[in-house]
């Protein structure tokens, strides 16, 4: 019983929600990318690899140019390039998108470690000094609001960017012509093509966007939350983001709710010493919850109709 009251008390502290939001944003950015990519009809299980690549190049660039903003840019370009490979292989060559996604993840895991050794030799990658990390920023006035102020408005800049992106992606996907086109291409590419849309262009754009967002998430992880690169530091976040996307039924707002739930779980564990359940068992929860969702116990989650199907112009 004391565990439950402890958790309830924790839920009333702003600290907990502040930490949970950071964890959630690390999942939200790749999840948004996944939503965009899959809505356009390209299955993307490669967020993990794109994020990892972004994390490495963020640290690499920050150590060279001593600017977190250049680092973020480099990380996003790196994530975008990984996504471009996925796009070329799965759109241009109409390859199996799952095989391509697996290959991206293996490629990223191998390349980052390979580069660590090639560039830094046997030494550690080195640490980013706090002054050159992605900064925290208190929003004037708003950060003074009790509770909400600390949770939402005393955060890292990337958190604000991510929350704005959440709203932007939600509006673009469901309230604009571009969003309609993206969804049309993902649901019925033949009809979209007949209507004059460039199926390939839209899919390329969507997949590359997912890489940019995952790269940003990697940068936030490496030079915002942590301050160095460690091999495999994403530790499955790209896959939890995938789970969040499915949990959220391929919508940005749904994915956000899932990210908050997963982030909250992480934060509760980190902040509570009275929970005697192994952290490793708790770490299973996002995956188990997703299995339960997939089992249809909490409503059905159906992917876009043409998700995963390569498009060849001129086919029926």
């Amino acid at each position: 019983m004391s565990v439950i009251t402890d958790i309830l008390q924790l839920l009333l502290t702003a600290n907990l929600w502040q930490v949970a939001l950071v964890s959630a944003v690390l999942l939200l950015l790749p999840a948004l990318g996944g939503v965009i990519s899959e809505r356009s009809g390209v299955v993307n299980i490669a967020m993990e690899g794109m994020m990892l690549t972004g994390a490495f190049f963020a640290v690499w660039a920050d150590l060279i140019w001593h600017s977190p903003w250049i680092a973020v840019l480099v990380a996003m370009v790196a994530g975008g390039l990984m996504a471009l490979i996925h796009a070329v292989v799965s759109i241009r060559f109409r390859a199996d998108q799952i095989v391509s996604g697996i290959a991206i993840n293996i490629f990223a895991a191998g390349l980052t470690v390979f580069l660590v050794r090639a560039i830094y030799g046997l030494q550690d990658v080195g640490h980013v000094v706090p002054a050159e990390a992605l900064p925290n920023w208190d929003v004037p006035v708003l950060s003074a609001i009790p509770f909400i102020g600390q949770v939402v408005f005393q955060q890292n800049v990337v958190v604000y960017i991510a929350l704005i992106l959440l709203v932007v992606v939600e509006i673009v996907l469901f309230r604009t012509r571009l969003g309609l086109r993206i969804r049309a291409v993902g649901e019925h590419p033949q009809a979209a093509d007949t209507a004059g849309l460039n199926v390939y262009l839209i899919r390329y754009g969507a997949v590359i966007t997912s890489g940019l967002l995952s790269g940003l998430a990697g940068a936030f992880l490496a030079i915002g939350v942590s301050n160095t690169f460690v091999p495999n530091m994403t530790d499955g976040r790209g896959y939890i983001a995938l789970a969040a996307m499915i949990f959220g039924k391929w919508t940005p707002r749904g994915a956000f709710v899932a990210c908050i739930i997963f982030g909250l779980g992480e934060a509760i564990y980190a902040n509570n010493s009275t929970i005697h359940v192994s952290q490793y068992l708790l770490s299973m929860l996002p995956y188990l919850i997703t299995l339960v969702v997939l089992a249809g116990l909490v409503g059905r989650s159906t992917p876009p109709a043409a998700d995963g199907i390569p498009y060849a112009a001129g086919s029926e």
């Binding site: 070329v88 292989v89 290959a103 490629f107 895991a109 191998g110 090639a118």
Partner: peptide
């Protein structure tokens, strides 16, 4: 003196080329 992770890179490249070119 070359990281054994090159093996992962090679493996990914094999997967890409099987998936893309030799479908």
């Amino acid at each position: 003196g070359i990281s054994s992770s090159l093996v992962l890179v090679l493996q990914a490249l094999i997967l890409f080329s099987i998936a893309a070119n030799f479908l």
